[in-house]
Amino acid sequence: MSFLDHIDPLTETAIAELTAAADSAELDRARVRYLGLNGEVTALLKQLGTLPKEQRPEAGQKINRAKNRLESLLNERRTELELAASLPKVPSDFTLPGRRPTVGRLHPLTQITEEIVRSFRKIGFAVADGPEVEDDYHCFDALNTPADHPARDTQDTFFIRQGTAASQPATSPTPMILRTHTSSVQIRVMEKQPPPVRIIVPGRVYRRDNADATHNPTFHQVEGLYVDRGITVGDLKGTVEFVFRDLMGPDTKIRFRPHYFSYTEPSFEIDFSSALTRKMGRDWLEIAGCGMVHPKVFENVGYDPETWTGWAFGFGIERIAMIRYGVTDIRLFYENDQRFLRQF
């Protein structure tokens, strides 16, 4: 009986063993036993040389077929076992809380400001900026609000102490103040650039009010200014309507009421009405002031009021945020309680 007669039974045994292997360690042991360097199948190949030359090809093919069969089975089983090993042992509890990376939030006032800026940019406005510490020329006089103007009474202003306490300057320099409105930037921009002008100015402003639920000495405004040829009250209304609908929802109604600001004429206050105001039990809620730029203001910055007309408006960002989110105390914006900030 030739060793060739062992091929088939050996193959069958090997197949059984590979199939039965319960994990990759057992599988590996079976591999070594049959297909390893000193394995039984490998041994058969080594015995080929003992056969007569003419029998060798046939015998070799037979052994190789068996070996290939075993190797493919081995690979198949290995994949199977590896897969089995990688399956979860215990089913996962999908209700456990996830591991959350921290992503910060923007301050609600920033979010509102960004929305306002986005709305205005849609219709061609650029963002402008100016100093918060101002002189009273830019904050008042240039805006047609001279020193003895009654309108100046309504704005209580913070003054910067000049010189040190020890050495007060001999001649009183121009008083420096904290700007009471962003309108001062209108003047700064128009002084610097020729018309047309189309800007919005978000920023901090200051009034000498003690902090309470509706006041904080620091708050934010957005100013809009558009100067061009042939600008009309209709343009002002159209833009205000566009922006407020964009901002407060398409059901928002806008109402203009004649009012008085020294730097615009005619001047208006803007009321809006929406589901939000109705929820607050009000038909109309005052939200902004606006008007056509007063010719005197144009004269002050060297624009010819016969050629150029324009409008300006301004509103408080806190007020919008308070209405939008139902915040009832302005101080919350400046306390930065994380439980507050994380709601927006």
Partner: peptide, 26 residues
């Protein structure tokens, strides 16, 4: 302004935004 006030600001229709493109260094 007086004409506008008595005529009624509510009777002046808003016009769709139009016109110059703004620019500012900031």
């Amino acid at each position: 302004e007086e004409v506008c006030r008595l005529y009624g600001i509510d009777k002046i229709p808003g016009t769709t935004p139009r016109g110059a493109v703004g620019f500012n260094d900031f």
